[in-house]
Simulated scan of single mutants.
Amino acid sequence: MATTTSAKRQAAAAAKRARAEVEAGAEDVAAEMEEAGSRARRQASALEDTLTRSAEEIAANVTDRLRAVGVDTDKMVDVAKEQATELQKLIEDEIRERPLRALGLAAAVGLFVGYLSAR
């Protein structure tokens, strides 16, 4: 009887140690994952900064080259904005005049894009 009680105590103690080791391991894994997440966020931020700087440099370079050949980039921006506004008005008018047709076209475009993306 004493051996049974002793075996139960040993088993309980072993289970308690195992549980403590599992909890400690889980805490270690959680800490490592948090550090990995922080590292990934820092790297993503650095990459975003690099890409932003590169895009700004490319835009400035293109603008300089266009100006060098006599293209007024400010005028191009104004014209593009004006055309976008006119296109937006045309689309709004079409939707107001023929809402079912506009809905059908939107559905058709959505199906086509979905078909292409599924391939």
Rank of each mutant, 00 (worst) to 15 (best):
R101C: 06
K75I: 11
A31H: 06
A46D: 00
A11N: 10
L47N: 04
I58K: 02
V69D: 02
A36V: 06
I91H: 12
A80W: 03
K16P: 00
T4E: 15
T50D: 05
A30H: 04
V71K: 08
L105T: 10
A31N: 07
S38V: 06
I58T: 05
A2N: 12
R98F: 02
A12M: 07
E82A: 14
E21P: 02
G25R: 10
V109Q: 11
R42V: 09
L103V: 11
D72T: 04
D74P: 03
Q83I: 11
L100N: 14
Q10C: 11
R39C: 11
V79D: 12
S38Y: 11
R96I: 05
E27V: 01
A118W: 08
S45V: 08
T73K: 00
A44D: 07
A31T: 06
D49G: 04
V69E: 00
A13K: 08
A55L: 00
A44G: 01
V62H: 01
A60V: 02
A84C: 10
A44M: 08
E21Q: 14
R41A: 15
F112W: 13
R67P: 04
A44T: 00
V62K: 03
T4N: 15
T4G: 08
E34F: 04
A11H: 11
D28R: 15
R119F: 13
E92M: 12
K89L: 10
R119S: 09
D72G: 07
T52Y: 02
D78F: 11
M33C: 12
L51F: 03
G25P: 02
M1Y: 10
Q88C: 09
R19M: 01
M1L: 15
A15N: 12
V71E: 06
Y115C: 05
R53M: 04
T50C: 09
A12Y: 04
T63S: 08
D74K: 09
I91V: 15
L51V: 05
A7I: 05
S38N: 15
V69S: 02
L87S: 12
S38W: 08
E21F: 05
E48Y: 09
M33T: 07
A80S: 11
D28H: 09
